[in-house]
Simulated scan of single mutants.
Amino acid sequence: MARFSLWRIMAIAILLFVMVEAQPYKPKQVKCKDKNGYPMCRGSKFTCPAACPRSCMADCELCRAVCSCDKGGAVCQDPRFIGGDGITFYFHGRKDKDFCLLSDSNLHINAHFIGRRNPEMKRDFTWVQSILVLFEDHQLYIRAQKTSTWDDAEDHLAISFDSEPIVLPREEDAKWQTSALSIVRSSSANAITVEAEGKFKITASVVPVTEEESRVHNYGIKADDCFAHLELGFKFYSLTSHVHGVLGQTYREGYVSRVKMSSDMPIMSGEHKFLASGLYATDCAVARFVRGPPAGTAGQLSELADITCSSGVSGRGIICKK
Results as ranks from 00 to 15, higher is better:
Arg123His: 13
Pro27Met: 02
Ser105Arg: 05
Gly296Gln: 01
Ala196Asp: 13
Met57Leu: 07
Ser44Pro: 09
Thr250Tyr: 09
Pro53Gln: 07
Ser105Gly: 15
Asp137Thr: 11
Ser302Lys: 08
Ser186Leu: 13
Thr282Ser: 03
Met261His: 14
Thr210Cys: 15
Ala276Arg: 00
Ile166Trp: 12
Asp70Tyr: 03
Glu120His: 13
Glu154Asn: 15
Phe200Val: 06
Arg42Ile: 06
Gly198Thr: 12
Gly220Met: 12
Phe89Gln: 00
Asp124Val: 14
Gly37Val: 03
Phe135Asn: 12
Met121Lys: 08
Ile319Leu: 05
Ile12Asp: 03
Ser269Ile: 14
Ile131Cys: 13
His244Ile: 04
Val194Thr: 15
Ile221Lys: 06
Gly84Gln: 04
Ile142Met: 15
Ala276Ile: 00
Asn118Gln: 10
Ser163Ala: 15
Ser311Gly: 08
Val290Gly: 09
His217Cys: 12
Ala153Tyr: 14
Pro293Thr: 00
Ile192Cys: 04
Asp98Ser: 00
Thr193Cys: 11
Thr250Ala: 09
Gly248Ala: 14
Pro208Arg: 11
Tyr90Arg: 04
Glu21Ile: 03
Asp59Leu: 14
Arg123Ile: 15
Ser68Phe: 12
Arg80Met: 03
Ala305Ser: 02
Leu132Glu: 15
Asp85Lys: 03
Leu275His: 01
Ala276Val: 00
Val194Ile: 14
Glu253Val: 06
Ser148His: 08
Ser269Pro: 15
Gly220Ala: 15
Ala174Cys: 13
Gln77Arg: 12
Leu157Tyr: 07
Thr193His: 10
Pro165His: 07
Cys226Ala: 10
Ala285Cys: 10
Phe99Trp: 03
Ala287Leu: 02
His156Gln: 11
Cys32Met: 03
Thr88Phe: 00
His272Asn: 10
Gly248Trp: 08
Ile82Ser: 01
Val286Trp: 04
Cys309Gln: 01
Phe46Pro: 04
Asp59Gly: 08
Asp59Val: 09
Ile87Glu: 04
Ala204Cys: 10
Glu136Met: 12
Arg258Cys: 15
Ser263Gln: 11
Asp306Val: 07
Val243Arg: 01
Leu304Arg: 04
Ser186Cys: 14
Arg288Thr: 02
Ser277Thr: 00
Pro208Cys: 09
Phe234Met: 10
Asn36Gly: 12
Glu271Thr: 10
Ala11Val: 02
Ile307Arg: 01
Leu101Phe: 06
Ile12Ser: 03
Cys67Trp: 04
Ile318Thr: 03
Leu247Glu: 06
Cys52Thr: 06
Pro27Leu: 03
Ala22Phe: 01
Ala13Glu: 02
Leu140Phe: 10
Thr282Ala: 01
Tyr219Phe: 12
Ala74Arg: 07
Gln139Ile: 15
Met19Asn: 02
Ser163Gln: 09
Val184Ile: 12
Cys320Leu: 05
Glu253Pro: 12
Phe289Ser: 01
Val167Asn: 04
Ile12Arg: 02
Glu195Cys: 08
Pro53Asp: 05
Gln177Asp: 08
Trp7Asn: 08
Tyr25Asp: 14
His112Trp: 04
Met57Lys: 05
Ala51Ser: 08
Phe236Leu: 09
His92Ala: 07
Cys52Arg: 07
Ile82Cys: 01
Asp98Val: 00
Arg288Gly: 03
Leu140Tyr: 15
Arg291Gly: 08
Gly83Tyr: 01
Arg3Ser: 04
Leu134Gly: 13
Ser269Val: 13
Ile202His: 11
Ser205Thr: 14
Lys26Arg: 06
Ile318Asp: 01
Ser188Met: 11
Cys48Leu: 09
Cys52Gln: 08
Arg288Ala: 07
Glu197Asn: 14
Ala11Leu: 05
